[in-house]
Computed example of a mutant assay.
Amino acid sequence: MVNFNGNFFTNDTAILTHNNRGLKYGDAVFETMRYVNGTLFFWEDHYFRLMASMRILRMEIPMEFTLEFLEEEIKRTTMENTAEGDAFRVRLTVFRNDGGLYAPATNNVSYLIETTPLESPFYLAKEEAYEVELFKDFYVSKDMLSNLKTSNKLLHVVAGVYAQENGYANCLLVNTDKNVVEAINGNLFVVNDKQIKTAPLSDGCLDGIVRKKLMEIIDASENLELLEASVSPFELQKADELFLTNSIAGIQSITKYRKKEFGNAIAKGLLAKLNAKARLSSTN
């Protein structure tokens, strides 16, 4: 079952029309979250990012869109799908209502909540091969829109097709300065000894929730150094580890980039701390 503006529909119900602005113009923002045993991981961070994104895109935020209201709607949706398990990937999409061309007829919005079962309630360290390559056909723009989680993801879609066609698990995206900013579905971290580097938001990467949480963890670690700076493609093969972060996988280690193979010792240690931080967020 999916939740459209508070009403439930089966997954095969035709809810949206050909006039949907998310379809026509990519006029939508979304949050993807982990829901486990009644708890949304890092919900406050997701909520405030959603509100900030809606303001930047000049969407009208409904009075009822409080943190508590949307959390309850998500929980109602998962309750409708409990037969599928108790750990879910939740996607909350907000889109501007029908009408207008590029300039909308209204700034009022609707929302859609979907759930998909997850294999595990917590983040897992996956050991399978995970090879990546640079995608250089198109570039990430260095602006605030690139920081937002919008439905304008054509670059990521084409990069995904490229990865499939060439047998890669993922692709790394570069910006207009030819610096590496992120992967198709997450932020990139580069490990050299005890220094861990990730691209700054000013380079155009997604303002990821797990990116933020992991930066807090690294910054608080006595034996690790956090560096937020541009990542050159030439740095990748010199790194000790490369890993990706997002709200569903947590941390995904990269095992190979071109001729270089990587370890995952630092990533495993950080994953344990991320799981602990997720559990702590669920008790607050």
Results as ranks from 00 to 15, higher is better:
F189A: 00
N3G: 04
R96M: 08
S53E: 08
R211I: 00
L112E: 08
V158I: 15
G186E: 03
D177Q: 15
S53C: 11
A276D: 07
R21P: 02
D27C: 04
T150I: 07
D12A: 10
L145I: 14
E235S: 05
I217F: 06
I218M: 02
R96S: 02
N152I: 11
F65K: 01
L101S: 09
S53Q: 06
A28C: 13
L173T: 03
I209Q: 03
F42C: 04
D177C: 14
A239L: 04
R211Q: 03
P117V: 13
A249C: 14
S151M: 10
V161C: 14
F48N: 15
T78R: 00
R76Q: 09
Q237P: 10
K149D: 04
R211C: 01
K277A: 06
K197F: 03
M54L: 15
L172C: 09
L214G: 01
L274H: 02
Y168E: 05
L92Y: 04
A239G: 02
E127C: 11
S247Q: 04
P121V: 09
R76N: 07
K178S: 15
R34D: 02
N264H: 10
P200Q: 02
M144Y: 12
D27F: 00
E182S: 12
N11L: 15
G204S: 08
N108M: 12
L214W: 00
T17E: 09
L134H: 04
A229I: 12
S253A: 15
V36Y: 06
N20G: 08
Y102N: 11
G100E: 09
K238G: 14
L57Q: 03
N5I: 10
Y35S: 05
L50W: 01
T150N: 08
N192H: 10
S232E: 11
G6C: 07
L201P: 00
W43K: 15
F189V: 00
L50Y: 04
I61E: 06
M33R: 02
A278V: 00
N284P: 11
L244I: 07
S230Y: 05
I254S: 01
D137S: 13
Y257H: 10
V29I: 14
S120C: 11
A183L: 05
L155G: 13
S247W: 02
E68F: 12
N37W: 09
V36F: 08
I248L: 15
S221I: 08
N264K: 10
F30K: 02
D137A: 15
N7Q: 15
D137C: 13
N97M: 11
S221L: 07
S230I: 07
T283L: 09
L16E: 06
S230F: 05
G99M: 09
L244Y: 02
F189G: 01
Y130M: 06
A163P: 01
